[in-house]
Amino acid sequence: MRHRILTVAVLSLLGGCSMMSARTPAPVEEANVGKPLPPAKPAPAGAEEDTGVEVYAYGAPPVSAIPGPPPVEQATAPRRTTTNRAVETLMEEAEHYRLSADYVAAAASLERALRIEPRNPVLWNRLARIRLEQGQYSRASSLAAKSNALAGNDQELKRNNSEIIARARNAGAGSGRLR
């Protein structure tokens, strides 16, 4: 601290004396501050709407007075083995996260698995289940429908998807009434 006061004092003197010979100091140019930003939307008007790209920001599950449906029990969730060990591992990882209610991480693992096997109906079913438990009913329903479309003859999986769709409809209607 003493060093600092001393420095400032010495500098003050120095500054004062130098003032006498120096020209008026130019204003300090603070580099890169206050320069205009690039135009936010370089695209011609209307082009953005035409990109066909949609964004859904990730949000917390909608707050609702009615709690979401209880987690679907493991026993009722269809299990179908995949021949791919990576997918199997990611499914196990997702299930582990789901059971500890870390739905975001669970969905992330399932999305990774879906990039590897995009037409595996069990993965779509599991993702639907996560969304249902998160209270994202319309997402859950669409994902279950997608799983159904890929399920072929897997009746058990189809039944489970129908159950998710029905639960999502009921829960969605319930929270809709409240609003």
Binding site: S12, G15, G16, S18, M19, P25
Partner: peptide
Amino acid sequence: ACLAGGAYV
């Protein structure tokens, strides 16, 4: 001058 210098610093 020294006061002005001080202010400048």
